[in-house]
Amino acid sequence: MTLDKVLVDIVGLATIGVIIWYFWLSQSRGVLAAVSGGMQSALIVVKGGYTPDTIVVQRGRPVRLIFRREESALCSERVVLPAFDKSAVLPEGEEVPIEFIPTEPGEYPFTCHMGMLRGRVVVE
């Protein structure tokens, strides 16, 4: 094996390592939902993904996630929160609320219709 091959393989393996770490192993810490009037709410911007994509909430209190879609890509047209049986069409530029009351601690994903964009609600 020549030096260039060894180099290519080392760089390749390192890149694979980075891919695995970046896409699968690391997770964003998440944002604590703001509490006002007993309601925990968070604004989520939808543009190529959900920002923030992890919302931390307390259980037992109503949660309001407000989605604002800032793109026209058809993919993100709808957001689905399967665990709470909620879904909403997100017209571009409009703020659309989804409300639910989490009772059990855990992680609940929300995704676009096709499951390509993902976010999660962490209930503590």
Partner: peptide, 25 residues
């Protein structure tokens, strides 16, 4: 499908890199 698609694209990138390395080597 949701489960598969959440792993799909990075997995393809890894496969592409492995392909490159094997063919190069």
């Amino acid at each position: 499908v949701d489960l598969v698609s959440s792993y799909f694209a990075p997995a393809v990138m890894i496969l592409a890199l492995l392909g490159f390395m094997i063919w190069y080597t």
